[in-house]
């Protein structure tokens, strides 16, 4: 079976609010598949439907070829979930959290203990083995949640903003671990706000907004298709704006800078320098962030 998750016209309403509005996608075995989007785009709701925690309103959804509403127990047994909200058990130590969780998956006690030790090492928390959850930093908690999600050796890992609020060291450790898991054949579905994270980890991704999927593709293809290969940023002055209009170069506003997406930054910069007297010019590679902002807009989402 090549498709591990298949969604057709998947819809979710909360009372009168449409959270997910008829999205279709497939996740293939062994890939890292990302969901990007501003707050309220419907990413978390989609994750909850996949992980059998929230019934859908309409459309079809299969995970491991089964309907999450008909076979939640079988599906959940093969899945690991890292929720957005930290819900470790404060009544137990790190190791206790893992062994207690293992029991929910019918893992025998001796095996659970062995796996807990392996996983604590995997997320570099061996020294915190017997420490209560309260005493852990935010980064340690996220790492422990990742370890907890792996306790049943899941074929499919669902991560809802796995690195939210972490320092760069902790993020890098989690990225590294996720890459390792993918190399071992796991399928990973994740949501994130961090576009560098998505670009770095995801084989394919979708960008969602207002419950709909706007685009689907590999990070590189999306950048090429929607933005181009390079970006020139020039400080916004009246002269520059007038000059760009004269030269018929299309641009976008970004704060106090003007952005020009192009295939050849060199030509644009030359034209700017020759004709426009720019104060400050920056050239850089186009990134997923440019695609994201182009598709979902620059205004604040809440």
């Amino acid at each position: 079976m090549n498709e591990i998750i298949e969604a057709r016209n998947l819809t979710k309403n909360y009372n009168d609010v449409v959270a997910v509005d008829g999205i279709s996608f497939t996740v293939r075995t062994g890939e890292v598949f990302g969901f990007l989007g501003p707050n309220g785009a419907g990413k978390t709701t989609t994750m909850k439907m996949i992980s059998c925690l929230s019934p859908r309103t309409g459309g079809s959804l299969t995970v491991f070829g089964m309907d999450p509403e008909e076979h939640p127990t079988v599906i959940k047994a093969k899945m690991g979930v890292v929720p957005q909200e930290t819900n470790l058990d404060p009544d137990f130590s790190c190791a206790g959290n893992l062994t207690t969780y293992a029991r929910y998956f019918d893992i025998p006690a001796a095996e659970a203990k062995a796996r807990a030790d392996t996983l604590l090492a995997f997320v570099q928390l061996e020294e915190k083995r017997d420490v209560l959850i309260d005493k852990l930093s935010g980064g340690m908690k996220r790492r422990l949640i990742l370890a907890r999600a792996l306790i049943n050796n899941p074929a499919l890992l669902i991560l809802d903003e796995p690195t939210i609020g972490l320092d760069p060291q902790a993020r890098h450790l989690i990225w590294e671990r996720l890459k390792l898991l993918q190399a071992q054949g796991n399928t990973i579905v994740l949501t994130t706000h961090y576009l560098d994270e998505a670009a770095r980890l995801c084989d394919r991704l979708v960008i969602m907004d207002k419950g709909k999927i706007l685009v689907l593709g590999t990070p590189a293809d999306l950048v090429k298709q929607y933005v181009g290969s390079e970006i020139v940023e020039v400080e916004m002055t009246d002269e520059v704006l007038a000059c760009l209009a004269d030269l018929k170069i299309s641009y976008e506003h970004a704060g106090d800078m003007v952005q020009i997406a192009t295939e050849s930054a060199r030509d644009i910069v030359k034209a700017l320098l020759d004709h426009c007297k720019p104060k400050r010019v920056i050239t850089r590679q186009a990134t997923l962030e440019d695609v994201f902002l182009k598709l979902t807009g620059r205004t604040l989402k809440e």
């Binding site: 925690l53 047994a77 058990d89 404060p90 969780y101």
Partner: peptide, 14 residues
Amino acid sequence: YQKSFDAIIATPLS
């Protein structure tokens, strides 16, 4: 407060 139920229903338990 502890969100324990949320954590448990992500396993085979309903």
